[in-house]
Amino acid sequence: MGDEPLIRWRWVRRNWSDEILPALGDHIVLCGISVLIALAISIPIGIAITRYRRAQTPVMFLTGLLYTIPSLSFFAILITFPGVKIGRTPAIIALVAYSLLVLIRNTVVGIDSVPRETIEAARGMGLTSSQILRQVELPLALPIIVAGIRIATVSAIGIATIAAYINAGGLGTLIFRGIDRDFPTQILIGAGLATLLSVLVDFGLLAVERWLRPWSRRAAARAA
């Protein structure tokens, strides 16, 4: 690459609104949709597991299995399915599948972390089971569920860069094109933005997690 600068800012400026921003937008939408769909599946399943323990082992085994499939193979397998076209759909399916393990597990762990005596006091005072779920179990489990969302989202942001290979769009597109053209600026902008997005989401959701736990935050502040 000789004495060429690592990043050509002129290219960045010129392609900012046509290529870079849309790729970033696609990436956020891709990961956002996937995690939301995964959440919509995982929370009911997680709650169901706390009610029917027998389901726990098979569900965790299955989602664990999905989690171990290497991402590129997963995308490849999906596009061989009839009716699944190359593009965003197989990417979303794979990202949802990857998120299930951590989201279901954290929902179960969150609900299990509610002290038994708290539930029993609630029952004894005449809360119905759905009131206990909504007013006691879920609020107390929420910080742990959000911790799961944080891990799932950060992983999704990483894996989604590879999904560009099957034309799902996103920041991976910049990386792959940059590699094709041997153009470091494009590679670095794609990779850099993906990293930045991960870090921001990580910190943002960590803040949400703490904000959802005013009781332990205040107690810690008082103890300090």
Binding site: A121, G126, W215
Partner: peptide
């Protein structure tokens, strides 16, 4: 009725069981 019965009976459990949140 289970819930009505319980709402009419004050109950202080041995392990206290306050709602932490």
């Amino acid at each position: 009725n289970e819930t009505e019965l319980r709402r009419g009976i004050g109950y202080a459990i041995q392990q206290i069981g306050l709602f932490p949140h």
